[in-house]
Each structure stands twice: as structure tokens, then as C-alpha cells.
Design a protein around this nucleic acid. Structure first.
Length: 567
RNA sequence: GCGCCCGUAGCUCAGUCGGAUAGAGCAUCGGAUUUCUAAUCCGAGGGUCGUUGGUUCAAGUCCAACCGGGCGCGCCA
């Protein structure tokens, strides 16, 4: 694509008197395909020549020598439009996809660079809600996209496995819990959560609960055997459930270093900050003052000397840099926490670590339910399990209606259903808040995961039914209809699309691309046939079908979805 | 009050580096299936791009102010 641009620029240089580089930067891709593949806007020359842009376009069209790859040069209003020779272009895209196959769309800009990605990070002893899905799914997709562009990634699950809430849970368990019942429960984490919610509610009436909770947490910190045992047990129950969900979503991590992992590094971290002269006392707490940067202070120790969230994140960042040696560390965490990240990044900068600039908060909007923030204690938490299962069941039902003879219905329903939920979360730019609505998640028509999967299935089906395999014998110049040109142009844009998604840590760029490609393909599918008596045309179109299937598949994989062959 | 984010069709959202007639999906209405999967496709209606001003040959896009919404702002994470 850039070669075409350069050729055009070279042909324009003599007539315009502009440098090739300058012309390259001026040339744009028309929004409307009808206008051509590239356009040179003539406005810039208007002043200098004292001439109306449309007239300049006409003159330039007369003057320039048409590059070999260009089939037509057309002045349209103030633009000089260039049409690239279709067969040259089509042949090149198809050949590239055939050669690169599963690697088509990959890149090398990340080679030799290591990116740590902190994502998912649910809290122990709390159910995995739909809110945690965002970090999980976005972080997972970003990891896949970055790896595709050559980066080495380190996936880190920074589990919320420490803090005073465990004291609260222990009080609740000691007062009302039944160990055997929870052990044999189908949903032990929900049972634990119920206890936690109950303790929270009762503590409003009964202040002794909070005191007891603090005491239990203190015991835990001091290594009391019973407190330790309970904590380990809670953690084990939670991890078993999380693992099951991660397996279902196809998400993996390189490290499960939760907050507790950093317990024995906290004192050293605070000490290091003290030695740097950054720590001061304020209202009984130890803080790093950030007033001159327009931020509230960063709290390191409470007045009872206990450490806080920021202390752990500081310790974790120092540890990760030392142990993993990352070039960039991403925190895929909701946008409400952006101030926290600004503060803790700033503290590292003040500490003088040269890599402070390589920490990046990748924020995303929160999920609301009926306009209200979801929270366990508000009782409006929607369980991820429930969402996944409802989606899978609905897909299963659709299969029974539309394709009852399908083999492996359960596996297909699982892939398509889970994919629907994942895609729904990755469809819009991540900073957007999401108002959770069942009707959105369970809609399988239009801009949805199943729509993309369905398109993939249709092309798979065509290739399956083709008697001759596509090979590379088809003549790309036969792909001459408008619909084919649109699809080919879209296919050509895939690598650039993935590059952008990686650069912006924005999976939705890939999802939107897939929707556009699928839309163009379905239109084509409706208007033209792939398999016909016209053997050369069929051969050419099979190459196209093969390419489309490849790109749709590559894109779905990048989002963490599993393409199915039939549905 | 201060900071960050957002404001585009009834709803959910795209809109690249400022560029040609602002685009999709959902919903509504009307159509399309002898033919490769109709979870599809085609068409119609639906717009003061929050408001005002500025920069520019050109503003949904950049700048400023204002209006509206969300989130955050010291001992939770």
C-alpha cells in the first residue's frame, strides 16, 4: 500500500514542485471507495498558484505521467484521485495471505520488547462478576495482539488476596459459617460471599464485629495458624473457581502473584522511599506528598502502620521490573482508579527509577446495571457464570432451531456462546462505560460475535463443498465486481488494523474491523456465487474465500474467541 | 470546589493526520430464500455532531468558555 503511495507521489512531484515526502503525507485514502484508492487534495497549491483547487486538479491530471500500477487518474472537484490497477492489487493481497496464512496481520515492531500485563486480578472469596470480565477479556486480547506484533508478553494476575476484608470474612465464618457445608457446596465462593455480606450488614449495628475483624487480620499478618489455615482454604476454594472460569474463557497467565506475594517486601519498599527522602508524616500516616503535582498525597502506611494498596503496587512494580525486566508494564484496570495510578507512577518517578515512564494504565469504563454501579454489597452483582451459561444455552437453542443435525452441538454452543459474551465486551472502545443489558449480550444478530462466527462458518462451508481446492492457481484479475474489490481492500487493511490495535492497546479496533469485513462478505455472498460452472472464476473466487476465512479466523483468535467450522 | 473521562439518529456506537454528500447495528416499517448456512441480505424513515465563540481554504475532528452526564479526590482495594 505504501509502495503505491510512493509511486503516486513520485509522479506528482515534478508537476507540483513539492517534495515526494511532503506529497506522501498529503495523500489520503478517500472515505468513499467510488473516489478511488488514493487522493491528492489540491488545496495546498491554491494559494501559491492563485487558482481554484478544482482547476489545479484538472491541470495536474494533464501534466503527470501515470505510474504503472495506476489504472486511472481522475480529477474530481478539488481532488486528484488515483485508481490502483485492480488485478495487480488483488493478486498481491491474496498471495500475501496465502503465504503468511495464520501469520497474516502479524508484525515485527515488538521484536525484542517485553511487555508485562497486569490484568483480571479478581478478589479472593468474592464471586467472579461480570465486572471482572472486562479486565480479563481486554487484557487477554491485548496480550494476543501484542504477541502477534512480535512483543514478548508476561501475563500477571494480581489477585486481591490480602487485606482487612479477610478479617471480616473470618469473623463471619467463625460466627455463622459451617465448614463442612461450604466444603461440600456447589458454590463455595458464593457461600463465603454471603457470609461477608452478612458481616458487613451486621457491623453497622454491632461495632464489635469490626474490632474482631481487625484482630483476625492482625492474627493473619502475624502468622497465627488458624487464621493462616482459613485464609489458605478461602484462597484455594476461590482459585479453583477462577481456574474453571479462565479455562472456559481460554485465558491463561504466566504468574499468579497476588497482593500477599509482596507482603515481605513492603517494609523494604517503604524504607527505600524513606531513604530517598520522599516520606513524611501527615495526620499520623506516612505519605508521599504530591501537592506540587496537583495530586493528593500517596498513602504508604495507615496511622496503625499497616500498609495500603499503593504500597503493594509500588513493591510489585519494583519486583516485576527486577525479576521480569519489562520494557513496558500495562495495568488493565478500570478508569475509576486512574488517580491511584497517576500517584503511584509519580512516586516511582520521584524515586528516580528511570523506567517509571514505562508503566501504563490501560483504563476501561465500568459496567453498570440499570444505570447503577455493580457491587457485591448492593446485591446487584451479575455473576459471570450466569451470563456465560445463559449465552451458551441460547446458542444451543438456536442450533436446535436452525441446524438440528449439527454434530458436536455442545462444543459449538460453548464456543459461540462464550464468544458472544467476549465480543460484546470488546466491541466498543474500552473507555466507554457499559450498561449491562441481557438483550445486548443475548442478541446474536447484527454487530455481534455470532455474526462474525457465522460469516466464518459460511466461508468454511463453501470451501468444504468446493470440489477443487483453491491452490494458488486462480486468476485474481477475474475478481472484478465492486463487492470483490471492497472485500479485497478490506483484507489488505488487516495488518495495519492490528498494528493500530497494538499501538493503542485497543482490541475494539480489531472487533470493528471484523464486523466491517463480515458485512462486506455477507453482502457479496448474497449477490454472487462462489461455486459455478465457470471454472476460472470459481478458482479465483475460492482463493478469495480462502483468504476471507483466514483473516476472519486470525482476527477471532486475536480477540480470544474460538472459530467454529459449522453452527 | 478541584482533577480525569464523556456528549454524534429513539437506543448502543464508528468516524484515521482537520478534507469530498457525517456512517453502522438495534428498534420501527416494507421487501428478498429452486441455488455455496436467512444467526443473512436489500430498501425506507430517523441528524442543530451539547451550546457559543475562535483558528483554518476547509472543523464532528484543533483551541477557549459555558451547559449536561460519569468517575475520582487520606488511612478500602
Amino acid at each position: 500500500m505504501s509502495d503505491f503511495k510512493r509511486e503516486i507521489a513520485a509522479s506528482l512531484a515534478p508537476a507540483t514542485g513539492l517534495a515526494v515526502e511532503e506529497i506522501v503525507s498529503l495523500i489520503e485514502r478517500p472515505r468513499d471507495e467510488e473516489h478511488g484508492d488514493f487522493a491528492f487534495p489540491c488545496f495546498v497549491l491554491a494559494k501559491q498558484r492563485k487558482m481554484a483547487p478544482p482547476k489545479i486538479a484538472l491541470e495536474l491530471a494533464e501534466q503527470i505521467e501515470k505510474p504503472a500500477s495506476v489504472s486511472e487518474v481522475a480529477p474530481t472537484g478539488p481532488y486528484l484521485n488515483f485508481f490502483i490497477d485492480r488485478s495487480v492489487r488483488a493478486g498481491r493481497v491474496l498471495t500475501q495471505i496465502e503465504q503468511e496464512a495464520a501469520c497474516y496481520g502479524s508484525g515485527t515492531e515488538g521484536e525484542g520488547k517485553k511487555v508485562a500485563i497486569d490484568f483480571s486480578s479478581p478478589n479472593i472469596a468474592k464471586p467472579f462478576g461480570i465486572g471482572h470480565l472486562r479486565s480479563t477479556v481486554i487484557g487477554n486480547a491485548i496480550g494476543k495482539i501484542l504477541r502477534f506484533r512480535g512483543f514478548e508478553t508476561i501475563g500477571i494476575n494480581h489477585l486481591g488476596d490480602w487485606g482487612t476484608q479477610f478479617g471480616m470474612l473470618m469473623v463471619a465464618f467463625k460466627r455463622w459459617g459451617d465448614e463442612e457445608k461450604i466444603q461440600s457446596s456447589e458454590t463455595p465462593v458464593l457461600d463465603l460471599n454471603d457470609l461477608y455480606v452478612k458481616a458487613n450488614a451486621e457491623s453497622k449495628e454491632d461495632a464489635s464485629i469490626r474490632d474482631e475483624a481487625r484482630a483476625w487480620f492482625k492474627k493473619l499478618e502475624d502468622g497465627d495458624p488458624e487464621a493462616r489455615r482459613l485464609w489458605n482454604w478461602f484462597k484455594k476454594l476461590s482459585l479453583e473457581e477462577f481456574e474453571r472460569i479462565y479455562r472456559r474463557l481460554g485465558v491463561t497467565f504466566d504468574h499468579f502473584t497476588g497482593e500477599s506475594f509482596f507482603n515481605d517486601r513492603l517494609d523494604a519498599t517503604v524504607e527505600r522511599l524513606e531513604q530517598a527522602g520522599l516520606v513524611k508524616e501527615s495526620q499520623g500516616a506516612q505519605v508521599v506528598d504530591l501537592e506540587e503535582f496537583g495530586m493528593p498525597p500517596c498513602l504508604l502506611r495507615k496511622s496503625d502502620a499497616a500498609t495500603l494498596y499503593a504500597t503493594r503496587d509500588l513493591a510489585a512494580a519494583l519486583y516485576r521490573h527486577e525479576d521480569y525486566g519489562f520494557d513496558t508494564c500495562l495495568y488493565v484496570v478500570g478508569s475509576p482508579q486512574s488517580l491511584h495510578f497517576q500517584q503511584f507512577f509519580k512516586v516511582l518517578e520521584l524515586l528516580g527509577v528511570e523506567w517509571a515512564q514505562s508503566l501504563v494504565h490501560v483504563p476501561f469504563g465500568l459496567i453498570k446495571f440499570e444505570g447503577v454501579k455493580m457491587a457485591t454489597r448492593l446485591g446487584n452483582l451479575i455473576l459471570l457464570d450466569e451470563v456465560l451459561q445463559t449465552a451458551v444455552d441460547k446458542v444451543r437453542q438456536a442450533i436446535e432451531e436452525k441446524n438440528p443435525a449439527l454434530a458436536g452441538k455442545d462444543e459449538v454452543a460453548e464456543s459461540v456462546g462464550i464468544g458472544a459474551v467476549i465480543f460484546n465486551d470488546l466491541r466498543n472502545r474500552r473507555v466507554k462505560d457499559i450498561n449491562f443489558r441481557w438483550e445486548d449480550v443475548l442478541n446474536f444478530e447484527g454487530e455481534t460475535g455470532p455474526y462474525v462466527q457465522y460469516t466464518y462458518v459460511r466461508f468454511t462451508s463453501i470451501l468444504r463443498k468446493a470440489e477443487k481446492k483453491p491452490g494458488e492457481s486462480g486468476d485474481a484479475s477475474l475478481l472484478a465486481t465492486d463487492e470483490e474489490r471492497l472485500v479485497l481492500t478490506k483484507l489488505e487493511q488487516f495488518p495495519e488494523t492490528v498494528r493500530r490495535a497494538a499501538a493503542e492497546y485497543e482490541p475494539s479496533i480489531v472487533s470493528m474491523y471484523l464486523l466491517e469485513l463480515a458485512g462486506l462478505c455477507n453482502s457479496f455472498l448474497h449477490k454472487h456465487r462462489f461455486l459455478s460452472d465457470d471454472v476460472p472464476l470459481t478458482q479465483a473466487r475460492l482463493r478469495l474465500a480462502h483468504a476471507v476465512r483466514q483473516v476472519l479466523g486470525n482476527g477471532l483468535h486475536l480477540l480470544g474467541m474460538t472459530p467454529v467450522e459449522e453452527m
